[in-house]
């Protein structure tokens, strides 16, 4: 029971790191980026390739799993995405689905369609017993890393100059521009950072979520649930939504495997219909 809760929390935290970039793109640029998962996949493959082909140790690959997708995100944002901010949501959806298809096929072409397996370092394998609860070491590791990231993000958002500008830009881009804030620079930076986080999440999650070319499609709905249910005006909303989703998913698959996903999708629909602004948002 507690083990499941623990696994669920780890899973949820992972989802948050994967999806929080999407929350920002959506909240900040009002851009529906269905291709967000492709950046996560990129991070996962960076780690897998570095480890399996070159033999770089797991931890050492993580910075690159962040940096590569971040640069990728930056380039794409500057060249393509920024042209679509003012377009209809339909256009954005079509465009980003197109990107997903391309990413899926391209990865399939380069690395094959099989699952990428990652050999975790031995000190992260296995489970230990804490107060009678079986706790996976790797999952504890994920909770620690992701927890640290969440705290760091929260600090960046609330304590730094960049954070206050970002919040101003989310609130009202026009006013922010009027205040002399370089909104497009903020867009680019956040997009890149969000993509990097997704990549990191993809690398960390390769063990738990699996990693193959269909990753962006398989998890798209999860990311979308996190941001639509959590809302996009704060970071706590998506965080809580991630935890809920993570715990619900793990528990669902364990206790009622035959209806697991069904329940999640149904709940998502109910939440969206009743609270289109998100579960944790005050209705406007």
């Amino acid at each position: 029971m507690l083990t499941i809760l623990f696994d669920g929390i780890a899973y949820g935290m992972l989802l948050f790191v994967l999806a929080c970039g999407l929350a920002v793109t959506l909240g900040l640029m009002n851009f529906v980026n269905l291709a967000h998962g492709a950046f996560a996949m990129a991070g996962g493959y960076v780690t897998a390739v570095l480890m399996n082909r070159i033999g770089v140790p797991f931890l050492a690959t993580l910075p690159l799993a962040f940096i590569v997708p971040a640069i990728l995100g930056l380039v794409l944002e500057r060249t393509l995405y920024k042209r679509l901010y003012s377009r209809s949501h339909l256009d954005q959806v079509l465009f980003s689905i197109g990107l997903v298809f391309m990413a899926v096929a391209a990865v399939d072409y380069s690395f094959g369609s099989q699952q990428q397996l990652i050999q975790l370092p031995t000190w992260l394998q296995g489970r230990i017993d804490i107060l009678g609860v079986q706790v996976g070491l790797y999952r504890s590791f994920i909770i620690v890393i992701c927890g640290a990231l969440v705290v760091a993000l929260q600090l960046i958002l609330t304590k730094t100059r960049f954070g206050s500008r970002l919040r101003a830009a989310v609130d009202d881009p026009r006013v922010a521009r009027g205040l002399g804030i370089n909104v497009s620079l903020i867009f680019a930076t956040t997009f890149a950072f969000g993509s990097g986080l997704a990549g990191l999440g993809g690398a960390l999650g390769a063990e738990i979520l699996g990693l193959d070319p269909t990753f962006p499609l398989k998890f798209m709905i999860y990311f979308l649930i996190v941001v639509t249910v959590g809302g996009t005006t704060s970071i706590t909303g998506p965080f809580l939504a991630s935890l809920l989703l993570g715990i619900a998913d793990v528990a669902g698959k364990y206790y009622v495997p035959s209806v697991g996903a069904f329940v999640i999708y149904t709940l998502m629909i109910v939440v969206l219909v009743l609270r289109p602004q998100g579960l944790f948002e005050r209705a406007r």
């Binding site: 393509l80 079509l94 465009f95 689905i97 197109g98 990107l99 997903v100 298809f101 391309m102 990413a103 899926v104 096929a105 391209a106 072409y109």
Partner: peptide, 9 residues
């Protein structure tokens, strides 16, 4: 699929 995606984009 790649080409479909490209066409869409």
């Amino acid at each position: 699929q790649f080409w479909i995606g490209l066409i869409l984009v």
